[in-house]
Structure formats: structure tokens, C-alpha cells
Design a protein around this nucleic acid. Sequence first.
DNA 1: AGACGGCTACGCTAAAAAGCGTAGAGGCTT
DNA 2: AAGCCTCTACGCTTTTTAGCGTAGCCGTCT
Lengths: 216, 216
Amino acid sequence: MEKIRVVIADDHKIIRVGLNAILQLENDIDVIAEAESGTDVIALMKTHVVDVILMDIDMGAPSGIETTHTIKSDFPDIKVLALTQHEERDYILKMLEAGANGYLLKNCGRDELRAAIHAVVNGDSYFSNSVSATLLKAITELKGNLKPASKSNSDLTQRETEVLQLIAQEYSNAEIAEKLFISVRTVDTHRRNLLDKLQAKNTAGLVKYAIEKGLV
Amino acid sequence: MEKIRVVIADDHKIIRVGLNAILQLENDIDVIAEAESGTDVIALMKTHVVDVILMDIDMGAPSGIETTHTIKSDFPDIKVLALTQHEERDYILKMLEAGANGYLLKNCGRDELRAAIHAVVNGDSYFSNSVSATLLKAITELKGNLKPASKSNSDLTQRETEVLQLIAQEYSNAEIAEKLFISVRTVDTHRRNLLDKLQAKNTAGLVKYAIEKGLV
DNA sequence: AGACGGCTACGCTAAAAAGCGTAGAGGCTT
DNA sequence: AAGCCTCTACGCTTTTTAGCGTAGCCGTCT
């Protein structure tokens, strides 16, 4: 069985040395090179066959994120394992968008490092503890912003829904009446029924509901 | 070193047997029980000490998702590794929201299974290949849906913002005046300035803006 | 045939918002 | 000191909503 060829990319020498030392202990992992900048990494790819890059996010320009992006478009088969101190959501999301296959915090243990490398080699993803927590939180939040759009707007009639949509589009009753070829009084009735059904106090409440339900 | 105590939950016996056979080969993993329903799983938790549950999503009521939810609220330390054929985004997201620590496809290999179990025991997350792809796609999409909402609400003064927030909360000018200890006329002026600045035709426009900017 | 829900519509009144203009007090900047 | 912005406030008019009630028409379900 071939060894897994790993490159360590970090602008801090201490980190490189540390990681290297840890990985020396693994008999199926081979650290074939170190890089101290994104430019180095990309250069290395052209001269070496690499399976996994341990990529620090915080390298100076080009950043780990940019570098990952480049790697992934030029060498899509190379796995990138992001290695960082940051748990900030934006970093994580950007790195993932760039195509990173896993995300480890720098204070991870030997076991985690090994497991993560194996995971990405298998084509899977590995996220360290707090990173996945952050990620899930992000997803939940983001989903919350999307989900209401798919709820069924249960108890409103079709006509009411139409009227509501137009209200939310800033049309006045008179304009709505014109658009729907009905009397202003009818629109008014619909509006009142809406206020009643949705327990809204005024237009603001109607618009909020409309937006929640994705009617706009 | 203690063995990792695993429970297999799936309503198909073949799957249970198969997984069991695979895990027998691991000398640090102990399959202590099998469950064929969510109810079984929860019952087992009360009588056994468990580290990891391999949870099928498709079990009948209660579903794997519901069961995971229950487990996670009653026994937060138990790790749940979702095991499924489905790569559908909604399934995945729901399972993650429920608190699953990892996500494997049923056609995963022995290596993946082992790695995933170790990952979740470590407190990390493991996502199989296609799952993480789906996940990333979802995140990217969702992020696109959120970004516009985080625009800076540039040109509004603080007071205007306050008034706008209250408007969006369905308060009338009179109520706002009372809350802010100012005259109704002042609120009216603010409201008019808002209409002007935001180029809104009426309350609906104001509320839409407020929601867009996340002021509600 | 009768009941019910949805859409239509009218009358009336009060309240609220929109559409103008104006303007002073206070703060900050130039 | 002059200029600009913010917050404050008032007057007046018109339009729009809100808050009641009522009611006919039509289709469906019972």
C-alpha cells in the first residue's frame, strides 16, 4: 500500500515542524514537502504528486482560501485539509466554498489529524468538533431564513393571497382594485379579512406575514 | 483502552447484520445491541451505556430524525452517526439540525465506517463524500439568500431606524410617539422622511425594507 | 333543498397615513 | 461664524386604512 503524500502549508515554521513531527509517527503518511506561502504550494503541485495539503488559512497573500481555490480548480483531486485557529463562521464558510475537504483546528490531537487525513483521502469530509458546531449553527440560521418561504399559507383563500401579495408590493387598495378588476370595497373587505385572519394590526403585519410566507 | 460501545438502529435486518459483521472485525468497537425502531433505540439508552448510535434515517415512526432529536436532548453525550441511502438535502439538513454528528451513506466501506465512528467519538464530525458535497451546495445557496439581508442600512439616522423598527412591529404613529416620548407629529415627520429616503410608497415598503435589513 | 365558504360589493365613521410646507434647537464640522 | 445634519414640532389637506355591519351570487358538499 502506498503512503499518503502530504504537503504542509503554513507560514509559521513552528507549526510546520510540529505537524511534521506528528506525522512522522504515522507509517502510512509521508510528508513530502513544506510550504510557507500559497505561491510555494502551487509551485510544489507542479513538481510533486500530492494527495493531501494541510493548509493554513492565515497565510499571507495569496491566502489559504485563495490558494485552495486555485488548487481545486487546477488539481481537483488533491485534497485540502484546512488547518486553523479560527472558528469564525465566515472563515469556515469561505474555506468550504473554496473547496476544502475538511477543517481542523490547530490544537487537534494526533488521532484527529490522522483520522482527518484518512477521511479526506477517502473522499469524505472531516470537521473538527467546534467547527462542525459552527457550521451547523450557520446552516440552521440560514435555513431559518429560507424555510418560511416554503410553508403553506394555509388558511388564506386564493383571492386573499393575491390581494396580500399586491399589498406587500406597495399597492394601495385602489390600485389593487384596478389590477384585479374588482371594486375598492371588495379589496377593502379582503384586506379586513386578512387583518382578521392573520391577527395583524395593520399593513405592517400583513407585509411581515407575506414576506415570511415568501409571497413576495 | 475501553472499547467503543455501538448500537445499530435500522429496521432492515440485513443491514443490521451486515454492519454488525463489519464492526466485528474492529477490535476497539463493540456492538452492544441492535434496534429495529426508534422506540427500541430510546429504550436501549435507558438500560445500556452507549457511545455511538448508527442511526438509519428511514425507520418508521418515530423516524431516525425524531429519534435523534430525542436522544440528543435526553443523552447529549451519545453520538449519532446517520446512516442512509438518501443524499437529499432536506434529509441531511434535518438530520443535522436534529443533532447528528456525522453522516454516512450505506454503501460506505469498512474504512469509512471505522473512521466515522472514531471521528464522532472524538467529538468531531464525519460526512461522507457526496453528503458533504450536498451540504456545501446547500450552504452556498443559502448563503446567497442571506447575504443581501446583511447590507448596511447606510443613510438612515438612528432615530429613523428606531421609528422604522417600531413601524415594522405594527405600532401606529401614536404608539411610537408614546414609546419614544416624542410628539406624533415628529413620528410622522420621521415616517415621511423614511418614505422619502427609502423611496417607498407606503408602510408596506417600509416594512419590506426593515425586514430586508434585518431590523425586525 | 339547504348549508357553507368564497368572492363580490355597499354604507358609514373614525383613525391613520401620506403629501405638501415650515422651522427652531442643538451638535458637529469647516 | 456659517453650514450642515439630526431631532424635534406644528398646520393643513387629501388619501388611505381600519372598524364596524350587511348582503347578494355562485359553487360545492351534504
